[in-house]
Design a binder for these strands. Sequence first.
DNA 1: TATTGTTATACTCTATAACTATA
DNA 2: TATAGTTATAGAGTATAACAATA
Lengths: 153, 153
Amino acid sequence: MQASTESSANTKQLHSGPLDGLLGYHLRRVQGAAFHHFATYLKHHGITPGQLGLLVLIHCNPGVSQSALAKEIGVERSTLGEFIDRFENQKLVERRPSPSDRRIHAIHATKRGRRFLEQVMPDVEAHEQEFSKPLSARELKTLIGLLKRLVAQ
Amino acid sequence: MQASTESSANTKQLHSGPLDGLLGYHLRRVQGAAFHHFATYLKHHGITPGQLGLLVLIHCNPGVSQSALAKEIGVERSTLGEFIDRFENQKLVERRPSPSDRRIHAIHATKRGRRFLEQVMPDVEAHEQEFSKPLSARELKTLIGLLKRLVAQ
DNA sequence: TATTGTTATACTCTATAACTATA
DNA sequence: TATAGTTATAGAGTATAACAATA
């Protein structure tokens, strides 16, 4: 193979130019890397980070409404409804009538959903451990703290 | 409206349980918040953070191959090809034959693409400024530094 | 043989708009 | 009127697999 004189050469890494100073760019990159790492580590469970987060949220907030979940994770109600549809098809969660408001579907994790979480969470911990290995415990704590402050606004 | 005794009450925020200690969870949340903020700030430009990043990369690496771009942003070649298709339809970039390797499409920003970037970048800067406001300049630098180390691995 | 790029296919994520039921 | 949820529709993002051209 001929060495290219253009910037497309295989061995050279690309210039990131003005992207290098942009928080949003690095956020995207790291989040992408974390997604791929998660997918590799938890392939056999067939779940994505977003799905896992939603399922944990449901588990920790029994009877929560779809609207509250949508607001929490920052998606539209219609989008959230689809996520719940899929979980319901997989028998991981169920919609129950709310005792206090007949418009509301109270969302609950099923026994199967809880068992699933018990099986998955150790692998999630292992993935986290491995992915965050470049940072010390203290640095990881600092990082999470800074990230939290960006969402709190 | 009746106050609910369940955790779905409107005013209560949800418990995040084991998610609270997970870097991946916070990464997702912040990245989602940044995406929405970007979309609001740059609505009139009709571009997403991912598209902008790719266009800047092309602009800063004239003649880069699709494979190199795919590798850089972490997507498959087929996916990247679609992004280039769209940019080409919008006349923002063009595929040129590579002088050294006839398999390669050398990707270049068009004049229109460069003008577009000139118009957009000031708004990107403004969005960044606003979004990262909860952090001091020093904290922002620390944050970006920590994020970079997670991708470098 | 390995790499670059394309095409076909399919699934997930996501939003908007219009709708029904309930508050 | 406002809120909760559903449905229909559409587009973006993404991957896999099979392929042609070139190295």
